[in-house]
Write a protein that binds this DNA or RNA. Structure first.
Lengths: 131, 131
DNA sequence: GCTTGACGTGGAGTGCGCTCGAAGGTCTTG
DNA sequence: CAAGACCTTCGAGCGCACTCCACGTCAAGC
């Protein structure tokens, strides 16, 4: 395991590149209270992202990518920000989300199966008609 | 197999109940060109849905529930409306959709795995701290 | 010193997919 | 024959999640 020199801090453009979000979205998330703590600023007022910030953004991205609404991500951020003592609430929030995602996966999979059938019908029809 | 008497035709409210959509959405889909053919009308001008209409709406719902945008559903409807001869185009459309859905399922599943890890961390933390 | 370019802020705009309201016609029931 | 339910059309409105604009500031290079 190689020790990686801790990055001094990343500009918003670098953070955007690393997270796959746009700078617009990064500012928007901060404005909207989705960050754990406000992002630090350099002497000139520019945002400076730490590795901790990036790790948090990765978690945000996972929650968003699995369909959690912004307002619920914010609620989770608020709980995390409050510090120790509300782990059971955070757990409940994540578990509720997990249950919804599983239900959603099952639903999409079922619909996809029906679409696959349709695809099969078209395929066999095209084969039968001949090349 | 029991033969079911063919339904004379359903009102929009009945169609809504059967499909799980609202009457608003059913009218909206028709207006937006998502129906295979315009829905028939009774002498008094009310919509009359046939079983064929319902089957189509079921397909629409599957496409929508798997994330196909309205405009693409409309494109598919247009192809089906045109009749025979473009099966390969319909097939390509559905296959492209299928590929996107599979990619999406894989992505969500991966993110969910990471969220599960987080859940595991909270659970073990709560257990360790004790009841 | 002056330009260039990345960044800052606040606020407006966009695209999607519904969702609802207004104004009126029609059908059934007491 | 009146009330109430349910339907019609057209068009406006909404919630979400960005996305973009205008304008200002700062640091570095020529």
């Amino acid at each position: 395991m190689t020790t990686i020199a801790p990055t001094a801090g990343l500009s918003i453009a670098e953070a955007a590149e690393r997270t796959g979000l746009t700078t617009h979205t990064l500012r928007y998330y901060e404005r909207d209270g989705l960050m754990l703590h406000g992002v630090g600023r350099s002497s000139s007022g520019h945002r400076v992202y730490t590795e901790t910030d990036l790790a948090w953004i990765t978690m945000l991205t996972r929650l968003r990518a699995t369909g959690m609404p912004i307002r619920e991500v914010r609620a989770y951020a608020v709980l995390c920000r409050e510090g120790d003592g509300n782990e059971s609430e955070r757990l409940a929030l994540l578990q509720a989300h997990r249950a919804r995602v599983l239900a959603q996966l099952a639903e999409v999979t079922e619909h996809l199966g029906a679409i696959d059938n349709k695809i099969g019908i078209y395929q066999s029809r095209l084969e039968t008609v001949g090349v």
